[in-house]
Design a protein around this nucleic acid. Structure first.
Length: 341
DNA sequence: CTTACTTA
DNA sequence: TAAGTAAGG
């Protein structure tokens, strides 16, 4: 989970049209996780081919990426590398939560309660290495660039934003901001609706944009102090202070200036080394300059071979996606030419 | 999640 | 044409 510092940030509502022609970096793991948890049949089970291979991630990536491309968005997917040792505790905690949900799912199946089955099937979803590998295979087939981060995807995406190789980072949590991403878009959907967790109720969602620098200016804090606030609240890389939420953390930072001073005042200097380590990671995460951001023509033959022959996708739907991807490329070329004449 | 079909 | 529902793999 990302640090709960979202309440501090003001956002502006945007429309999908504002993203026409814009390069948007997606944290691949976040997106795939969303698909694996939400692209499901009515029984709550993930979609699979006839051999039982999961296909939720493939369906999600194919349809969503295609419709984003159709809207003029130029997507780039950034994949995680090795998580830092600092994240070990968070990863273990998530695994425990997943295991507990799996036990509850088994009980729900015994009881035969459909709502509970759905809920816990979703909560116990995990991402197999195969799911990641297949995603890394499918996107290039679609002509969509992928980037492999040496460590955290959000950190790499923030770096690419800083280098002006992308216009926005798309993220549903707040980690990207701590890594310094200045232009973040949220709630990007084609349908404009999203299911409420655990309920069969749909609410309207509007895309929004958050400008970190504007927010820092308004809050009167530096980027380092923003990181310090996140550290006080708690991040994937450190445990936060007890009973300190975003608002309290902001107040403390305004009073004391740095997280180190806050720890000193609370007589918790023993925590300083771990806070320093997390802070250093947010300030200088491992990233790579070895990436290219280029959109190619989709390879229809490979897509049909993989999705239809191997994973039971309908050829109509796949070819429809290919056609849309090609149309998006043609439209893009036209606007590029128009700029010259 | 998105697409495709059904209904008013 | 818009909103609701089923299906997709």
């Amino acid at each position: 989970m990302g640090a709960d510092i979202g309440d501090l940030l003001e956002r502006d509502t945007i429309s999908m049209k504002d993203l026409d022609g814009k390069i948007v970096a997606f944290d691949a793991f976040n997106v795939i996780y969303q698909f694996v948890t939400t692209v499901r049949g009515r029984d709550g089970q993930a979609l699979t081919d006839s051999n039982g291979n999961p296909t939720s991630h493939l369906a999600g990536l194919l349809y969503r990426t295609t419709s984003f491309a159709e809207a003029g968005i130029k997507p780039v997917f950034v994949f995680d590398g090795e998580p830092p040792e600092l994240k070990a505790e968070t990863i273990e905690k998530r695994r425990e939560i997943r295991d507990k949900a799996h036990e509850k799912w088994k009980l729900a199946v015994e009881k035969g309660d459909p709502a509970e089955i759905y809920k816990y099937a979703q909560a116990s979803a995990r991402i197999d290495p195969q799911v990641i590998d297949e995603s890394k295979m499918l996107l290039p087939m679609m002509g969509i660039p992928i980037v492999e981060s040496p460590s955290e995807g959000e950190a790499q995406a923030a770096f690419m934003l800083e280098n002006k190789d992308v216009d926005f980072v798309s993220s549903q949590d707040y980690d990207a901001f701590i890594f310094g991403a200045t232009s973040v878009v949220r709630n990007l959907t084609v349908s404009g609706k999203r299911k409420l967790p655990g309920k069969s109720v749909y609410v309207d969602v509007v895309p929004e944009k958050v400008d970190l620098n504007k927010n820092l200016e308004r809050l009167g804090i530096s980027r380092e102090q923003f990181i310090d606030i996140a550290l006080c609240v708690g991040t994937d890389f450190n445990k936060g202070l007890e009973r300190v939420g975003a608002k309290t953390a902001l107040k403390l930072i305004k009073e004391k200036g740095t997280v180190e001073e806050i720890l000193r005042a609370k007589d918790k200097t023993d925590l300083t080394p771990s806070y320093h380590a997390a802070k250093a990671f947010f300030q200088h995460p491992p990233v790579t300059t070895e990436y290219t951001v280029k959109w190619e023509k989709p390879d229809a033959d490979k897509m049909v071979e993989f999705l239809c022959r191997k994973r039971d996708f309908s050829e109509d739907r796949v070819m429809n996606a290919v056609q849309k991807l090609n149309a998006a490329r043609a439209a893009k070329k036209k606007t590029t030419l128009d700029q010259w004449f």
